[in-house]
Structure formats: C-alpha cells, structure tokens
Design a protein around this nucleic acid. Sequence first.
DNA 1: CATCTGACGACCG
DNA 2: GCGGTCGCCAGAT
Length: 108
Amino acid sequence: MSWDPVYKLVKQIPRGRVITYGALAKALQLRGGARTAGRALAATPSGRGIPWHRVVGERGKLLIPEPYASLQRKLLESEGVKIVEFRVDFAKHGWVPTRRGKPKHRKK
DNA sequence: CATCTGACGACCG
DNA sequence: GCGGTCGCCAGAT
C-alpha cells in the first residue's frame, strides 16, 4: 500500500501545529481508521522532510515509544508548541486539514 | 495459509 | 484520569 497521500498531508501541516492520527485517517478516509494512519507514520521514511513529529494521538498525547517521544517533544517545542507531560496543548495547536480535492470514495 | 503485532481510538469499570 | 479489552488492517513471521 502507498502511504504517499498520508505523507503529503503531513507535509502540509503548518509549523507549530499538530494533527491526530484519527483526524489524519478521517481526512484521507483510510479504511482502518486511526490505526492505519499510525501504521503509515510508523513506516515514514526518515530524511524526507516529513514532519512526522507533528502527528500525535487523540488530545495531543504522544503515543510513540521512546526514544522517539523525547525527540518529538523536543522538535515540537522548538517550533513553539507547548508540551506538558508528553501532551500537546491540542486546543491551541491542533490543526484541521484544509478541504481541498478531498477524496469522495474510500480506498480498496 | 495461520498467527501475531502494533507511532489508534472508542468503551467500560 | 487510568488501565484493560476489542475492532480494524497491513506487514512480518
């Protein structure tokens, strides 16, 4: 499966903003929901300028295992995103993908 | 081909 | 709010 659409959307996340796996899955209408979105991020190739650290769990919670969580927190804070106990102030930094050429029929 | 696993999230106690 | 279970699905074994 090609996760290109996922990476493409992640790259569009504005600096200093974050999005959740669920919102990501919903925006792209991924069949498996949030879990599938997480799968896509887990498979994210590094060194491609993909801001994977801007993707967090529901309510802005950092769900990834160490040592990534620490790295993610560091990266987000460097962008001005406030992190509290491995949690992002989602209400303040949450981002909703802008509607554009949105898909009309789910994959598969 | 049968199982297990996991960068999720909704539910329940 | 926290921990355990369940459903989902694609990849790995």
